[in-house]
């Protein structure tokens, strides 16, 4: 895969088809944790970190164990374990989140106390599983998967930071009563999604 192709994957997943604003992945924690910028930043960084770690790991497991004819190196050419994809991916995600949590607690207590509460949440963040399922569907190579997962994380971080910043200003505005809270958040997100659509014209 050439360099330009990788840049194109990165730009596409950060801006053009942003994982959150165009694919709607990771909405739940996005809506819950966008109240203030600091929390949003912590969660966003944790998502980037876990995504970049788990997606290549899942890629290796998928390519060498689960894919159709992947077990040929064990002299089992007719075995197709693709139906185990969901179960394996979610187990890998859950356990690597757990490991990351323990390692961070031991070696970087400061970072752990900053991100600590968000890490367990990430297991059920659909952005992580979504990215893992997307690379299966799009048949990416290892390098492409790594770039794709990292830049999807960056895209997610960008979106949640944007919304958190807007929400901060929104506190001072007079929103109709029924629209307060969730309703206005959705409308704001819609406007953000529209703004991000402007990137759609870029082609590499």
């Amino acid at each position: 895969m050439d360099f330009i192709g990788l840049i194109s994957i990165a730009l596409t997943s950060i801006f053009i088809s942003n994982i959150l604003l165009a694919n709607f992945l990771g909405m739940c924690s996005f809506l819950e944790c966008s109240k203030n910028v600091k929390t949003a930043n912590g969660l966003g960084l944790a998502v980037i970190f876990v995504l970049t770690l788990t997606a290549p790991l899942n890629w290796a497991i998928y390519t060498y164990l689960l894919k159709d004819e992947a077990l040929a190196w064990l002299n089992l050419p007719n075995v197709n374990l693709e139906f185990l994809v969901f179960l394996t991916f979610i187990a890998v995600i859950a356990s690597s989140v757990q490991i990351v949590e323990m390692v961070m607690e031991k070696f970087t207590p400061a970072l752990y106390s900053a991100l600590g509460i968000f890490l367990p949440l990430i297991t059920v963040n659909c952005a992580i599983l979504g990215v893992c399922l997307f690379f299966v569907e799009r048949k990416y190579t290892l390098l492409e998967t790594t770039v794709f997962s990292f830049s999807s994380g960056v895209g997610w971080w960008l979106a949640i930071m944007g919304l958190a910043a807007i929400n901060k200003k929104l506190k001072y505005s007079n929103v109709p009563e029924g629209l307060r809270g969730l309703g206005i958040t959705f409308l704001t997100t819609g406007l953000m999604a529209m703004a991000f659509m402007c990137f759609a014209g870029i082609s590499l």
């Binding site: 629209l179 309703g183 959705f186 409308l187 819609g190 999604a193």
Partner: peptide
């Protein structure tokens, strides 16, 4: 065309939430 794209979904859900909150208050 906007309805087919992502923002349309956000706007519709936002409006639905608004309506349901207003009527079931």
């Amino acid at each position: 065309g906007l309805m087919v794209l992502a923002p349309g979904a956000f706007f519709l859900i936002g409006i639905f939430i608004w309506l349901s909150k207003t009527f079931y208050k």
